[in-house]
Design a protein around this nucleic acid. Structure first.
Length: 271
DNA sequence: CGCCAGGCCTGCACGC
DNA sequence: TGCGTGCAGGCCTGGC
């Protein structure tokens, strides 16, 4: 589920519920996520106030009094705001109970997500220290992408999915952005011209922004029992459309495998 | 049953 | 030797 737009939508949905609130109780039902949830976390977090929530790449960061709680949703994680005392279901691994009665609950069937704690400068955390620029910020621009791709012989799709190049471009939006930019996913990154880098930066921004905007329109449902921000109805240009006609030229969409991930593209529109 | 799935870190091999 | 780079493996469950 979570690509960057889902994480951003989750952040926006959680923020008003959690900002400036005091943590009353932390429950770990299953610590076995991608890394173990620290066993001492309940003791650490109790009575701390959540000062602010923000996002870096796909990490949700809850800045508290003495450190930062790092949340990652992996492939199947979701966070929800629920009434206190809501009974946990299968795969509900972690709860933050606030003093005002609000309950934030993490569900993650595949357990690729993470709940970690860091004291001190969060930018120095090993998971965050070597990340590239945010796709929606100014430092991700044509000149940057051009420079970052000069010595990269790997396929452009894999390079834009590499978090050292730019963060937050997952498998769906990599295919989508390349389609809108008219670039073949297999093209060696070093072969992209500056104008094509400019175009790709623009389409990465546009696809992510459009999806975030769509997620925002479903925010009112954030506290619903299913808590899913409705992305499944989203229609894609190429992702998941193997064999279907390209929406621009009618050519059947092709599916290939790159770096063990499926890639979708139009062999006519993308050069 | 086998296969696939939206993430992403780690370890290894390689070439400069 | 050390670095950047590219690749494969692995973590899990659920759905088709």
């Amino acid at each position: 589920m979570p690509e960057l737009p889902e994480v951003e939508t989750t952040l926006r949905g959680l923020s008003p519920h959690l900002t400036s609130q005091r943590i009353a109780k932390v429950t770990i039902r299953n610590p076995h996520l991608r890394w173990p949830i620290p066993a001492n976390l309940p003791g650490i977090l109790r009575n701390q106030t959540i000062r602010r929530l923000y996002r870096r790449a796909k990490y949700l960061l809850l800045e508290c009094d003495s450190g930062t709680l790092i949340l990652h949703l992996g492939m199947s994680g979701s966070l929800r705001i629920l009434p206190a005392l809501t009974l946990p279901e299968k795969h509900d691994h972690f709860d933050l109970q606030l003093a005002n009665g609000t309950l934030m609950r993490l569900r993650d069937p595949r357990r690729f997500g993470a709940v970690l704690w860091h004291e001190g400068d969060i930018a120095r955390h090993p998971l965050l220290a070597s990340l590239g620029p945010e796709p929606l910020q100014e430092d991700f621009n044509a000149a940057y992408l051009y420079r970052a791709t000069r010595k990269r012989s790997a396929a452009i799709k894999q390079v834009i999915m590499d978090s050292h190049t730019v963060v937050g471009v997952g498998n769906i939006y990599a295919s989508e952005s390349l389609f809108h930019a008219g670039i073949r996913p297999q093209l060696a990154a070093s072969k992209l011209s500056l104008p094509r880098c400019a175009r790709l930066v623009q389409t990465i921004r546009a696809t992510l922004s459009a999806s975030i905007a769509q997620g925002g329109s479903t925010l009112r449902d954030f506290t619903d029992s299913d808590g899913k921000p409705g992305y499944f109805q989203q229609s894609y240009a190429v992702y998941g459309r193997t064999g279907d006609p390209c929406r621009v030229c009618g050519t059947p969409i092709k599916q290939i495998v790159q770096g063990q991930r499926s890639t979708f593209y139009c062999p006519n529109c993308q050069k």
